[in-house]
């Protein structure tokens, strides 16, 4: 299968909306039709052919070469196939993703994986603030799928997350897993202050501790839970270090008792988080 490639000619003069460039929307389209797709976010019209050099192939696998942070909404509402991005992306990459794989070989802006429903989002660099989080006015953030960030993540990763798994292999910003409703958030290195702020349900795993833990989390002791081992087996294909962390004995802190209190934070086996 030859993949469809879009090579950025030069850094665009305005931010672009790349949401039309997903496999299910490009399937069956000719090169001419694809080049005419409009991507502008201002009043000045910009078509695909003006900013990208198109090499036709099977739209089931799309590659964006030379990407930069001015490309927003990459992979938005994608339902299947593969979208590979070589470079950075702007805001809301993988927003409402419901299937397939979106792989970003660079950094992602804020609200990556926002409202994601299913599928896989891989970010090889860092992720911006509110990874998987809801947009203003929305009741829940990520609702399913798996997000893997090889670098660091900004503040409030997993905000209002309802289902799914987020793995951050680097550092986490402040308030990771804030207002989480359910799901699993794993931060391998240290996280910022107040993880699980107003956590209702869900699991946060902190491999490197955090700057400050809310006193509204209560110690439930050190456990090597089968559920974590089972989770480890399931996430191993996506992140071996995360799987390794989940297999260790971890201290369980239940909370946030300021709200429902049926969530949990796992930290390394020390008396202090």
């Amino acid at each position: 299968m030859t993949r469809l490639t879009l090579a950025l000619r030069q850094r665009p003069s305005q931010r672009l909306d790349l949401s039309p460039l997903v496999p299910h929307l490009l399937a069956g389209k000719s090169a001419r039709e694809i080049e005419r797709i409009e991507l502008q976010t201002t009043r000045r019209r910009v078509a695909v052919g003006e900013v990208f050099r198109l090499r036709m192939g099977d739209a089931e696998q799309i590659c964006i070469e030379g990407s930069c942070e001015r490309l927003d909404y990459v992979g938005r509402e994608m339902t299947g196939g593969e979208l590979l991005v070589d470079g950075d992306v702007g805001i809301q990459a993988g927003r409402l993703l419901s299937g397939g794989r979106l792989a970003i070989r660079g950094n992602a802006g804020p609200w990556a994986a926002s409202g994601m429903k299913s599928g896989l989002l891989q970010i090889l660099g860092a992720a911006g603030d509110r990874l998987g989080g809801p947009l203003p006015g929305e009741m829940s953030g990520m609702r399913g799928g798996i997000v893997v960030v090889r670098g660091d993540a900004g503040e409030r990763a997993g905000d209002r997350m309802r289902r799914g798994t987020i793995i951050i292999e680097g550092h986490g910003g402040p308030y990771p897993g804030s207002r989480m409703i359910a799901g699993t958030l794993i931060v391998l290195r240290s996280a910022g202050a107040l993880p699980g702020f107003l956590l209702k349900r869900g699991t946060i795993v902190l491999g490197g501790g955090c700057d400050a833990l809310s006193p509204t989390f209560v110690d439930c002791g050190v456990h090597q839970l089968l559920a974590n081992r089972y989770m480890a087996a399931m996430i191993e294909p996506y992140s071996r270090p995360a799987a390794k962390l989940m297999r260790r004995p971890l201290r369980r802190l239940a909370g946030d008792m300021a709200v429902l209190g049926k969530g949990e934070i796992f930290v390394e086996n020390t008396t202090e988080a």
Partner: peptide, 11 residues
Amino acid sequence: GWQISKRVGPK
């Protein structure tokens, strides 16, 4: 009420 639901991929 203390049961916890977990979903990873299709599992």
